[in-house]
């Protein structure tokens, strides 16, 4: 049966097929779209119009808060990935793919690519709305490219963490509990209010957690605030989180399937 004899499948094609699959799946999950696209915009409006008046940051609050909202929406978008990975692991999908000699790495990478794509979309949406409500950064083209790079690093790192968590949790419901942690992280940071307005014991955490240097790097690029060592710290955090997540995911995946 010549019709049924296919050429040896290529690994690169597997990766792109799996990425296309993940993107299609999330694009049809209305809850995912709502969470990763609408929620960040709504939160930004909430902060700017309801809380913003009472928060003194020395600049227009919308300008202060946009970098934080961008990271917040990366958290929302990535947390969805934990659920989709967890679903694949528990639904039998992973067995089907493995029996077709599609590697676990391809399946997971597909989810991460979809997560990044989803986040790029939500980031663009948040920025567009931000401009409409008065976000006025002072950045040239090079600053924008660098800022996009920083955001991409953060999105990639969060997506990798989410994929790893998806392997760790036994049910999609458990994975969704993880979104709380991911989306909580930006709050005790300089994302929404200056750190020096927080109680002393929170300041210690806020100043040294990964989100703060990333936000300060974005502010430095977009608003021209002093950068200091923040860009280096941001790169180290993102790179470190990504590498650790990938390594852990490898171990967890092997344990899950044997």
């Amino acid at each position: 049966m010549s019709e049924l004899t296919a050429p040896a499948p290529s690994r690169i094609a597997d990766w792109s097929t799996m990425a296309a699959r993940s993107m299609r799946l999330t694009s049809r999950n209305s809850e995912a779209i709502l969470t990763s696209l609408m929620l960040p915009v709504m939160l930004m409006l909430l902060f700017v119009y309801l809380f913003g008046g009472a928060i003194n940051t020395g600049t227009a609050y919308v300008t202060y808060v946009v970098p934080g909202v961008l990271l917040l929406c990366a958290g929302f978008g990535a947390s969805m990935t934990a659920q989709t990975v967890s679903h694949d692991m528990s639904s039998g999908a992973i067995d089907r793919f493995r029996s077709m000699d599609v590697s676990g790495a391809a399946v997971l990478a597909g989810h991460v690519v979809a997560s990044v794509a989803r986040n790029i979309l939500s980031t663009a949406l948040v920025l567009a709305v931000a401009f409409v409500i008065g976000f006025r950064p002072h950045a040239d083209a090079q600053d924008w490219v660098l800022a996009a790079g920083v955001l991409l690093m953060f999105i990639l790192a969060m997506s990798a963490v989410a994929a790893m968590v998806g392997l760790l949790t036994r049910t999609p419901e458990g994975a969704s509990g993880f979104s709380f942690f991911m989306t909580f992280l930006p709050y005790p940071s300089s994302a929404f209010v200056p750190v020096d307005t927080m109680p002393g014991w929170v300041q210690g955490f806020a100043e040294n957690q990964p989100v703060t240097p990333i936000i300060e790097t974005l502010r430095a690029l977009l608003l021209g605030t002093p950068a200091g060592s923040n860009p280096l710290l941001a790169a180290a955090w993102c790179g470190g989180i990504f590498v650790v997540s990938v390594l852990l995911a490898r171990v967890l995946f092997r344990r899950r399937v044997s």
Binding site: R24, L25, S91
Partner: peptide, 18 residues
């Protein structure tokens, strides 16, 4: 082996949203 076999698992492993 994987190129020679097909597996249909206990739970229909098809994507609901596709």
């Amino acid at each position: 082996v994987r190129r020679s076999i097909s597996l249909t698992g206990q739970y229909a492993a098809v994507d609901e949203e596709q």
